[in-house]
C-alpha cells in the first residue's frame, strides 16, 4: 500500500519517519532545491558580476548571554545594491544565524534550516538538539563546496544558539568556508569588515578595562554599534550606522531563556548618547 497515492501528483510522498526535511526536499524537488549542488554545479568560471557579498557580522558573550549583530549593506563589487538587508536571521526561538557571503545562498540556507528545524520538531515530536543544529549548518556549507570553489557562492556564517529544552547559556559558533564548526568562547566575527572588528575585540579582551564577557546589556549594545561603525570606516562594503537615513544595524540579544531584538529607536538613542560622550 502506498499512502498517499503515488499516482496523485499533488500528494506527499511516503512518510520518511526520520524528520529530515532536506532528504524530503531532495527526493521531491531535486538537488538544487535542497541546496545540494555537488551534482548540479558544473561550470567552473566565476561570475564576478553576480558576486553580491561583503558585510560585517559580529557576536560576543556579554554578562547576560550573547549579542549578535550585523550591518545592513549588500554590495556587488563597488556598487551598493541594498541598504536594508537583514543578515541576522532568527531560525527559530533558540537559534540565530548571522550571514556573511553570497546572499542568494545564505538566505536559502537560513530558510532551509528554519524549515528543517520546525519540520523535525513537528514530525518527531521533540526539538532538534543544539549539536544537531550546529552540525546541520556545517553540512549545508560543506554541500555548497562547489559554489564556494567557483567563487560565486561562499557563505561564512555565525550561529548563536542555546539548548531548545534545557535552560543553558547560549553558545556561539563560527564556521570556515568548508563547513568546519568552532565554538567561540569569547567572540566570533565574519565578513569583509571583520578584520577591523576582530582586532578591536582582541584588544578589549586582552588589554581593555573589562572583557566583553563582563559588559552589561547597555554596554554590550553600545560596543556592537561602535564596532560596526569602526568596520564601516575601514570597509566600504559595511554599512555601519546610518543616522541620516535612519538605517541602523540589527542587534539581537540571546539569554538562557529569551531572544529579543533591539529596536532601531533604542539603537538610535544609544548611538546618539555615545556620540555625545565623544565630542
Amino acid at each position: 500500500m502506498t499512502f498517499p497515492s503515488a499516482t496523485n501528483a499533488c500528494a506527499a510522498p511516503l512518510p520518511t519517519g526520520v524528520g529530515d526535511f532536506r532528504e524530503l526536499l531532495l527526493r521531491t524537488h531535486g538537488p538544487v532545491a535542497a541546496l545540494d549542488v555537488r551534482a548540479a554545479a558544473s561550470s567552473s568560471h566565476a561570475a564576478s558580476s553576480l558576486h553580491v557579498e561583503a558585510t560585517t557580522v559580529l557576536s560576543f558573550h556579554y554578562k547576560g548571554g550573547v549579542l549578535i549583530a550585523g550591518d545592513r549593506r549588500a554590495t556587488a563589487g563597488n556598487i551598493v545594491m541594498y541598504d536594508r538587508a537583514d543578515k541576522v536571521i532568527e531560525l527559530d526561538p533558540t537559534t540565530v544565524m548571522a550571514i556573511a557571503g553570497t546572499p542568494a545562498t545564505a538566505f536559502e540556507m537560513a530558510r532551509t534550516l528554519s524549515t528543517s528545524f520546525q519540520y523535525y520538531r513537528r514530525s518527531q515530536l521533540q526539538a532538534l538538539s543544539l549539536s544537531a543544529k550546529v552540525r546541520a549548518l556545517g553540512k549545508l556549507i560543506k554541500d555548497n563546496l562547489p559554489m564556494t570553489l567557483q567563487g560565486v557562492g561562499v557563505v561564512v556564517p555565525i550561529l548563536a544558539a542555546r539548548d531548545p529544552v534545557k535552560k543553558t547559556d547560549p553558545q556561539l559558533y563560527f564556521y570556515d568556508a568548508l563547513g568546519a564548526q568552532f565554538n567561540a568562547v569569547d567572540f566570533a566575527v565574519s565578513g569583509s569588515g571583520s578584520p577591523a572588528v576582530r582586532s578591536v575585540l582582541q584588544w578589549i579582551n586582552r588589554w581593555g578595562e573589562k572583557p566583553t564577557s563582563a559588559l552589561d546589556e547597555t554596554q554590550a549594545v553600545q560596543l556592537a554599534l561602535q564596532l560596526l561603525d569602526v568596520a564601516a570606516e575601514s570597509d566600504t562594503a559595511t554599512g555601519g550606522v546610518d543616522r541620516r537615513s535612519h538605517i541602523f544595524p540589527q542587534v539581537k540579544l540571546m539569554t538562557s531563556d529569551s531572544l529579543r531584538s533591539i529596536t532601531p529607536e533604542a539603537l538610535r538613542e544609544s548611538f546618539v548618547a555615545l556620540e555625545a560622550s565623544h565630542l
Binding site: 499512502f3 498517499p4 500528494a11 506527499a12 510522498p13 512518510p15 520518511t16 519517519g17 526535511f21 524530503l24 526536499l25 521531491t28 524537488h29 532545491a33 530558510r111 532551509t112 524549515t115 520546525q118 519540520y119 513537528r122 514530525s123
Partner: peptide, 18 residues
Amino acid sequence: IEKVRQAAIDAAHLEGFT
C-alpha cells in the same frame, strides 16, 4: 494516525518552503 499526520506535515512543509 502516524501515517496521515506525517503525510500532512510533509505536504505542508514542502508547500511552505517551495
